[in-house]
Amino acid sequence: MGSIAQMGGTDGWGRASAPTLDEPVFAESWEGRAFAMTLLTMGRISGRNLDSFRHALGSLSREDYLDDGYYGRWLNAAELMLTESAILAPGAVDARVRANRGEQVDEPPAPEQDAKPDYKPTAAGSLRTVEDPPRFAVGDRVAAKDVDPTGHTQLVGYLRGRTGAVTIIQPAALLPDTHAHFEGENPQHVYAVAFDSRELWGPDAEAFTLTADLYDSYLEPA
């Protein structure tokens, strides 16, 4: 649960404020450039995928995740994917910034050989067909496993070890945990599981129901 991306239920962020009406899509023009470049980087340029992008985001330091805002963290994750795929040399972006402002700096040359993952999806998108019937039915009691995977996962931290009930059987999809690391699609059934707020946050919690989507291997019968 060390990833900065596991934000659900964490403390210390302050008060929310009323939404701004007519907020621009990109507050500053660089944000649009960073958005578009990250989309292009993800597949075409780095040979990576949406889940490895999410893993890159979650691998950023707290500063790289928070200090440059949302599209800043996209930019930082894009740079990470590009250096991991040896499209860019480490430090190349910062060196170019300094060169652009007239500093004497040796820009590192681009790597001679890229290191894109040798990996191709079996189909577009994330939805897949699973032949075996779903392990759980609507209404079944299930628990989110109390585990702490070292690699990428979409198993939400604040749900681990908690018990809820299946409310929707969602379309089967490839498993982010392996897909992010180019270790196979491992398509699984996905379930919307509803948890009572008191199961998550204790007897004094506000009354509400929290529903999250959980992949089959994240769950066990309860």
């Binding site: 994330s126 939400v156 509803a194 129901t209 929290l210 529903t211 999250a212 989507d213 992949y215």
Partner: peptide, 11 residues
């Protein structure tokens, strides 16, 4: 009644 939905898959 309040229902909160955490979009934790591709749904």
């Amino acid at each position: 009644e309040v229902k909160v939905w955490d979009s934790s898959s591709e749904v």
